[in-house]
C-alpha cells in the first residue's frame, strides 16, 4: 500500500517514542516481576504500584554528573554510547506491527519500511551495536572495561552465526527475507485432519525457535549470558567508567534491544500480529503482538531470576560445539523435507 513519505516519517517518529516509553516500562516490569520471584514488592513509592518509577529514574540520571576518566580517548568515549542507542532503535524500522489500519480517514501502514532484506537488516544492525560496546570499553582506559568489551565482541560474533543460521529454515519455507511476507505467510492455516492450526513457524521450526531464543538472549547480553557486564568479576564490565546519561544510553540500548528481539521473535515464530479476530477488529493485531512480545520479556526476567551465569569457556563451548552443529542440521533437514513436499525426491 503506497502512502506519502511524510506519513511514514510520522509513523517512524511515533514508533520511536513508543519504543522509548515501553523501554522505560520494561525496566518497571522487570523490577516488579523480579521482586515477585524473590518474594519482595519492588518499587511501590512513586505513584500507583510504583508506576512513576521509570520517570523518576530518568530525571535522576539526567541530573548526574557526566564523568570522563583522565586516560580516556575523549571523542570515542563520548560517541560510543550513541552508537548502541541508534542501532537499537534502528532495528525496529523493519518490524511489521500489522498490515494497514484506518486512522483519520487514511489507510496507514503499521510498519516503517518493508525492506526486502528485513531479517538480514535486523541481524546486521543488531551486531553493529557491538561496535558501541567495544569502542566504549576500549576508550575508557580501564582494565575491567576492556575485558568486558572483548568478551562482548567474542560472544556476539559467536552467537551471531547461530542467530542468523537458525532463521534459514524460515527463509526456505517462505522464500523471502522480508518480515512482512513472513508475517503474512503465518496468517494462513494448516489443516491436520480435523484440527486447523495457524501456520506459525514455531510449529514447523521448533528446533530453530529454541536455537533462536538462546542466541537472542546471548546477543542482548542478558543473564545467563551477561559475561560482558558480569558484576561479580568485572565491576560493571564495558560501562564501568560511564556515568550520567551516557551510562543511560547503554542501558536504553540494552532494553530497547530486548524489546526489539521480543518483537522480532514474535514476528518470526508466533505469527506477529496474527491472532483470533485480528483481521476483523480494529487494532486487535497490535494487542496480540504486544501480548506475544510480553511473553518473551517475561521469559527474559524469568531467566534472570532463575539461572546463574555461565563461565566464559562454557559460553563459547555452547555456541561452537552444541548450537552450531544443531543449526546446520536444522537447515539440511528442513531443506530435505521441503524437497519431498515439492515432489523433487521420491
Amino acid at each position: 500500500m503506497d502512502q506519502p513519505i511524510w506519513i511514514t516519517f510520522i509513523v517512524a517518529f511515533v514508533i520511536m517514542n513508543v519504543l522509548l516509553i515501553s523501554m522505560a516500562y520494561a525496566t518497571w516490569f522487570e523490577r516488579k516481576v523480579l521482586a515477585a520471584f524473590q518474594d519482595r514488592r519492588g518499587p511501590t513509592r512513586t505513584g500507583w504500584h510504583g508506576l512513576g518509577q521509570p520517570l523518576a529514574d530518568a530525571v535522576k540520571l539526567l541530573g548526574k554528573e557526566d564523568l570522563i576518566p583522565a586516560g580516556a580517548d575523549k571523542i570515542v568515549f563520548r560517541f560510543a554510547p550513541v552508537i548502541v542507542f541508534v542501532t537499537a532503535i534502528l532495528s525496529a524500522a523493519v518490524i511489521p506491527f500489522g498490515g494497514t489500519i484506518e486512522l483519520f480517514g487514511r489507510e496507514i501502514n503499521l510498519y516503517i519500511t518493508d525492506l526486502n532484506v528485513g531479517a538480514l537488516f535486523i541481524l546486521a544492525v543488531g551486531s553493529a551495536g557491538v561496535y558501541g560496546i567495544i569502542l566504549g570499553a576500549w576508550s575508557s582506559a580501564n582494565r575491567y572495561s576492556l575485558l568486558g568489551g572483548l568478551r562482548s565482541a567474542a560472544q556476539v560474533v559467536s552467537y551471531e552465526i547461530v542467530l542468523g543460521l537458525s532463521l534459514v529454515g524460515i527463509f526456505i519455507l517462505t522464500g523471502s527475507l522480508s518480515l512482512k511476507s513472513i508475517m503474512e505467510r503465518q496468517a494462513e492455516t494448516i489443516s491436520l485432519g480435523p484440527i486447523d492450526l495457524p501456520n506459525w513457524f514455531i510449529l514447523s521450526q521448533p528446533l530453530a525457535f529454541i536455537l533462536f531464543i538462546v542466541a537472542a538472549v546471548a546477543e542482548t547480553n542478558r543473564v545467563p549470558f551477561d559475561l560482558p557486564e558480569a558484576e561479580t568479576e568485572l565491576v560493571a564490565g564495558f560501562h564501568t567508567e560511564y556515568s550520567g546519561f551516557r551510562f543511560s544510553l547503554y542501558f536504553l540500548g540494552e532494553y530497547i534491544n530486548m524489546i526489539v528481539v521480543s518483537l522480532f521473535a514474535s514476528t518470526l515464530f508466533l505469527g506477529g500480529p496474527n491472532g483470533p479476530g485480528s483481521d476483523t477488529y480494529w487494532g486487535l493485531g497490535l494487542v496480540w503482538l504486544f501480548l506475544k512480545a510480553l511473553i518473551f520479556m517475561f521469559f527474559y526476567v524469568w531467566l534472570r531470576a532463575t539461572i546463574p551465569r555461565f563461565r566464559f569457556d562454557q559460553l563459547m563451548g555452547v555456541a561452537w560445539k552444541v548450537l552450531l552443529p544443531l543449526t546446520l542440521a536444522n537447515i539440511l533437514v528442513t531443506g530435505f523435507i521441503r524437497l519431498i513436499a515439492n515432489g523433487e525426491v521420491f
Partner: peptide, 13 residues
Amino acid sequence: VVMFMVAAAFGMG
C-alpha cells in the same frame, strides 16, 4: 526512511 530513523535516533540521543 531508514536514514530518517538514523537521524531521528541520533538527534534523540
